[in-house]
Amino acid sequence: MHNDHDSVASLLRARYKQRLPPSLDELSRPEHGMVELPLHIACSGVRTLDLDRPRQRMSLYRTVLAEGTRDDLCRFLNRDILLELWPVLHTLISTAIKGVWEEAFPELRP
């Protein structure tokens, strides 16, 4: 049973790894205003979020990290906001995503 869990975890890690931007500097989304997420990221629930509202901003980052392609990450995320949100954000995302991002970008590590 334990092995199944390990293989699922490594598949997830591989999937998130493929989506990583080459560097955090690629994340150049504006820091303010309304953002409408495409259906493939937010197929249910709220798709238009306000970056100036902290809860909505956190929700956007959490959703895009989990569901977004590499292009989406670069299009919807901002490096400075990601760094600012990370201390809380990393507790809201899966260990696979957290691990892959912190491995690739040491500046996210506590």
Results as ranks from 00 to 15, higher is better:
Leu37Ile: 09
Pro38Val: 05
Ala14Trp: 07
Gly45His: 11
Leu82Phe: 13
Leu92Pro: 02
Thr91Gln: 14
Ser94Arg: 05
Thr69Cys: 04
Met1Ser: 13
Val64Asn: 02
Arg79Leu: 09
Ser44Ala: 14
Arg109Asp: 06
Leu108Ala: 06
Ala66Gln: 12
His32Ala: 13
Asp6Glu: 10
Gly45Leu: 13
Leu27Asn: 04
Cys43Ile: 13
His5Asn: 07
Ser10Gln: 14
Ser44Val: 15
Arg55Pro: 03
Ala66Phe: 07
Ser28Val: 11
Trp101Ser: 00
Leu24Asn: 03
Glu107Ser: 14
Ala42Gly: 05
Gly33Met: 09
Glu102Tyr: 10
Asp71Lys: 09
His2Met: 06
Leu11Trp: 08
Gly68Trp: 00
Pro30Leu: 13
Glu36Met: 14
His5Cys: 04
Arg57Asn: 01
Ile97Asn: 01
Arg75Ile: 02
Thr91His: 12
Leu37Lys: 00
His40Met: 13
Trp86Gly: 01
Cys74Arg: 15
Gly33Val: 13
Leu24Tyr: 04
Leu108Met: 11
Glu36Ala: 15
Ala66Asn: 03
Ala42Tyr: 07
Val46Arg: 15
Leu49Lys: 00
Leu108Tyr: 10
Ala9Arg: 09
Glu102Ala: 10
Thr48Gln: 15
Arg70Asp: 02
Gln18Pro: 00
Gln18Val: 04
Leu11Gln: 10
Leu83Ala: 09
Arg13Tyr: 04
Leu37Phe: 09
Ser10Gly: 02
Thr95Tyr: 08
Cys43Phe: 14
Glu31Val: 14
Leu51Gln: 12
His32Met: 04
Met1Thr: 08
His90Arg: 15
Glu26Met: 13
Asp71Tyr: 11
Leu82Ser: 07
Arg19Ala: 14
Pro87Leu: 03
Ala9Gln: 11
Cys43Met: 15
Ala42Thr: 06
Asp72Pro: 03
Leu60Glu: 00
Gly45Asn: 11
Gly45Met: 07
Ser28Gly: 14
Leu24Thr: 08
Leu73Asp: 02
Lys17Glu: 12
Asn3Trp: 05
Lys98Tyr: 09
Val88Trp: 08
Arg109His: 11
Thr95Pro: 05
Ala42Met: 05
Pro87Val: 04
Asp52Met: 02
Ser44Gln: 14
Leu89Phe: 04
Glu107Tyr: 07
Arg13Asn: 09
Glu103Gly: 10
Glu36Phe: 08
Lys17Asp: 13
Asp25His: 09
Glu31His: 05
His2Arg: 06
Ile81Ala: 05
Trp86Ala: 02
Asp6Ile: 07
Ile93Pro: 01
Pro106Leu: 11
Asp80Met: 06
Ser23Cys: 14
Val64Glu: 01
Gly99Met: 00
Pro21Glu: 05
Asp4Gly: 03
Arg70Pro: 01
Thr48Asp: 04
Thr69Arg: 01
Ala9Gly: 03
Pro21Lys: 09
Leu73Thr: 03
Cys74Asp: 06
Leu82Arg: 10
Gly45Cys: 06
Glu31Cys: 05
Val100Gln: 00
Leu82Glu: 06
Arg79Gly: 08
Gln56Phe: 02
Val8Asp: 09
